[in-house]
Design a protein around this nucleic acid. Structure first.
Lengths: 224, 224
DNA sequence: CATTTCTTTCAAACTTTTTTCACATGTTTT
DNA sequence: AAAACATGTGAAAAAAGTTTGAAAGAAATG
């Protein structure tokens, strides 16, 4: 299901858009300011963002800039400014677009459909979220607190198994059997080395999610 | 670990349910109204929802309807209405269930277990519950009164054996043979030291479950 | 086929757990 | 009540398991 995040300081506007989008079959999340929006994008599955330009605390363009530091989710600006304004033109880059207020429901969904078609691929991917970690399964891409983590094959398979089976303890032998296959001949210390690298790559926070179970193996758990 | 979201406008009721569920080994999230609940479900891992029907802002049925637009997480309604009421009957659909207030802790956990079994997911990793102690076997994790107890290998194996065999008396020699193996060479007083640490870690209440049987060995028993 | 990236091995440093031991405390027997 | 025996406890030694950095070996890439 496609998730759209609506960012606008006016509740009525958010509610109105939500109504339209839900009728059009989208899942809708809301945020009333830029910071909440950024937090939501980091912790939830969001496929597209509708971003109001004129907001009191932080304007839409600034929010966009901050979002672009860690994600390439398509953004559609909602603006009362003239569509031909240089300001809008200048800032609407990449796969993004804009809609001028007031707009009709048809106009809005048309833009959304266009942009989703254009960006096409990665939209309908399932995700597993555990704490600050998000695992985009189709993309085989993990982010920690919004930051992309570049993982090798074995590292990804490890974190994926862990995220699918939170709390469960795996011995080194079990991990080797599950991820390397029954015919693996090497030593069990290989697992340790991958765990080491994984913890380092996941960063100070998420690295701690991988716990050592002394004398047994490892367990993935988000501290509650 | 299985996460249950409790949605109720009364804090006391939420607290009470939380207490019971933690004792039963669940992880508990709370929301005091429907919108917060929906937000939580969207952003956190929730395996089951306990949803109060009578709430001031938005009643439970409406919340359920909204939840059902994007998730199929099982819902158990908490209601003061008569179980035979058409309203309840009509609205409790699919895999859902209801519990009539006031309800006992046993009634509640029975419904939860039933629904988790019914929906079948691997949520229910096996557990042994004895008094305030819950042993999550797959996670090799014991909680005492809802609090995590960090145990070493031998300590866990000891408490696990005891919880699987309540009331049975084990001599030090038997424990050494079962947990250390037939080839163990050391002295039997090692067991005493582990029992000491275990009692201490389990806390004032659960520590007393491990009884000394004079001249014989030890026994695990919840009674008294 | 040279280069880069990923995986595995290894051993020393380090951390945690397990065991031992000596004495304190408690229970039973004489 | 004293002696004999069994368990409780804290500290320290011994053992076991883990982390880590470096480097060799494999595999993928262009």
């Amino acid at each position: 299901m496609t998730t759209i995040l609506v960012v606008d300081d006016e509740q009525d506007m958010r509610k109105l858009i939500e109504l339209h989008l839900q009728k059009a079959g989208f899942l809708v999340l809301q945020a009333e300011n830029g910071d909440d929006a950024i937090q939501l994008v980091k912790t939830s599955k969001v496929d597209l963002i509708l971003l109001d330009v004129m907001m009191p605390k932080k304007d839409g363009f600034t929010v966009c800039k901050e979002l672009r530091e860690f994600t390439s989710i398509p953004i559609i600006f909602l603006t009362a400014l003239d569509a031909k304004s240089d300001l809008v033109k200048g800032l609407v880059l990449g796969g993004d677009d804009y809609v001028v207020k007031p707009f009709t429901a048809i106009e809005l969904t048309a833009r959304i459909d266009a942009i989703l078609r254009r960006t096409g691929i990665q939209i309908n991917s399932d995700r597993i979220t555990k704490g600050v970690l998000v695992n985009d399964i189709a993309a085989r891409q993990v982010t920690s607190d919004g930051k992309k983590i570049v993982l090798t094959l074995k590292e990804y398979e490890l974190i994926h198994l862990f995220m699918e089976n939170e709390s469960k303890v795996y011995s080194r032998e079990q991990l080797l059997e599950k991820l390397w296959g029954l015919d693996y001949e090497g030593g069990t210390r290989t697992v340790d080395t991958h765990i080491k690298t994984l913890r380092w790559k996941l960063g100070a926070m998420a690295g701690k999610y991988i716990e050592t179970v002394w004398g047994i193996g490892y367990r993935f758990e988000v501290n509650q």
